[in-house]
Amino acid sequence: MPTPDFPAFLDRSLAVLRSEAPAHHAELAVLLGARGLCCEVDGRSVALCFDGARHALRPPDRREAVSLCTDRRTILDLVDGELTLLDALLEERLWLAGSADAVTRFDEALTCYLDGAIRCPSLPPLLEEFRRAGLEVTLLPAAEAHR
């Protein structure tokens, strides 16, 4: 199985959301719309946008309403309650760029995504896969050293 990087995790989690929490997926489509969001995680960028009710991932083209930059460790620390969103921003572990309206809308979209995600029975295994892949990535340099 390929290592689930952030774009793969995001794509699969949105598919789960559409299937198991469709009202949240529909609201997310309205909040993010066609301009969408650019996510850069561990140096890899992807744009999330909606065409009507359907989500799509594509290469960013700088037209996204909001840009987010972070890393897998910060995402997992947020998920594990080790870090608050505010602290992530203040400690510059998470960057957000966009107009005030767009950032406010992103906050609503994130809340909607999370509120739906916690109601999806299929999401915990997906998150665990994302977490384990992070451990593999972290361990790789040490494994390389033993060769």
């Binding site: 998920v79 309650g81 809340t111 999370l114 509120d115 916690i118």
Partner: peptide
């Protein structure tokens, strides 16, 4: 402590 921990993010 709030569990599950993700709920600190969802409902801070």
């Amino acid at each position: 402590l709030r569990v599950p921990r993700i709920m600190s993010l969802v409902s801070p």
